Amino acid sequence: MFASLRIPGAARAFIPALIGRSALAMAGLAVLLAVQSRTGSFALAGLASAAFGVANVIAAPWRARAVDRWGQARALGLLALVQAAGFLALGIVATVPAEGPGWFLALAAAVGLSAPPLGAAMRVVWSSLTEPGAQREKAFSLDAVAEELLFVGGPVAITAIIVASSPGVGLAVVGVVGLAGTVGLITSAASRAQGARGAIAREHRARPLAVPGFTRVLVVLVGVGAVLGVVEIAAPALAAEQDAVPVAGWLLAAFASGSAIGGLLYGHIRWSVPLGARLLVLCLGMGATAVAVSLLGSVVGSLAVFAVGLVALGAFLAPSLITGYLVADSVVPVDGRTEASAWINTAVNLGASVASAVAGAAIDEAGAGIALLVVGLVAAAGAVVVPRRRLRAAVES
């Protein structure tokens, strides 16, 4: 899988893209800590963090569409400049008296809206550098595993920066890192080769949601995201139930580690199973494992056993995402692939956001185990809508 970096031009694009994507891994916590430090209110800090997250999710497909239409250099460069300016402005507001909370919410939403879709753009670059089949699957697996590790290390890094300096400096660092990584990507030869497609007539430009079966894939991945969202709430809740709040971080790390392991294994397997069947099995496995972890946790009640279960559950996350990216790459025409990849992320993030909101109330009423049990059943049930025949026909054509 790491042989993907030896492909000519791959490392030159991938490394800066990874640096730029680390900004997203740090941004949510940086916004939360900065607003809370300035206002003393976790409620307002939570609203600002939510404004950032919701704006990022809502705008993702449209930002990606702009990249497909205008090219990576122009679209990503402009987005990165706007976002860096937004982070710097938010850092200034967080260090000087402001008239009201509106500034925090508006600027948090602005940096979310302008987040450059570096992950989707890099997957398009990978597609241009690799041959369909095993080589591309390995490249996508490397990409997914690296992204998982960013979201493990990013929050730790930004917390250390803020503690050592100030929230304003932390926000500035996030903005600079995002801009530097984006500039590094768009100045690479592989990225520059992804030219603008603005000359393509609007009616002939690829629209991923119009591709038969693609929306059904997104529905399945909403279920995958829902499991992720419940885990992010259930793990801290279960730790709190057993008076072991510091263990919550380790439980989430176990889930992320399982995802990274799953992604590594996925990239080393020579697949003969079609993408549709692969996605079906992975999503059914994730749902069934969520149910098993819930039942086992209820019977045994050990946080150590729950952590092992989360490793097993996480092992389905990255492979499900990788398969979704491969579907987007296989069935959507080249002039819509950045948008298609962004829709994959949007579906997962939407499922996670909705499930997180619902899980909180469910856990208060019935405990963490029930929430995980229900979402596991929902994810497994949703897997049956995978359009296996359509995907097979689209890939073969």
Rank of each mutant, 00 (worst) to 15 (best):
A234E: 07
G213S: 10
R390L: 15
A206M: 12
W343S: 08
I158S: 02
I162M: 12
A315I: 01
T215P: 07
V124R: 14
G314K: 09
G184L: 05
S302D: 15
I370L: 15
A288P: 02
V230C: 00
A84W: 01
A73P: 05
L310N: 04
I233S: 08
G195T: 12
V217S: 10
S294N: 10
T130Q: 15
S341R: 03
L24W: 11
V219W: 04
R216L: 11
A210W: 09
A66P: 00
A164G: 06
Q72W: 09
A288E: 01
T289D: 03
P116M: 06
A89G: 04
K138H: 14
I58C: 08
P97E: 12
G102P: 03
S353I: 14
A352M: 13
A190W: 09
S259W: 12
F87R: 06
A288G: 01
A23I: 01
G198W: 13
A355P: 07
G86T: 01
A108M: 06
G263K: 11
P16M: 04
T187K: 10
A381T: 10
I370D: 09
A380P: 01
S397C: 08
R278P: 00
V231F: 02
V231A: 06
G133T: 12
L373R: 13
T182Q: 04
A239Q: 09
I322H: 12
E396Y: 10
L284I: 15
A307E: 00
Q83K: 05
E148C: 10
V273G: 02
V354A: 14
G20F: 07
G100Q: 06
P246V: 05
I269K: 12
A120T: 06
Q135I: 10
A84I: 01
V174I: 02
T323R: 06
V384F: 15
F104N: 11
A394R: 10
G20Y: 01
A11E: 02
S341M: 14
I370V: 15
A355Q: 05
I186P: 00
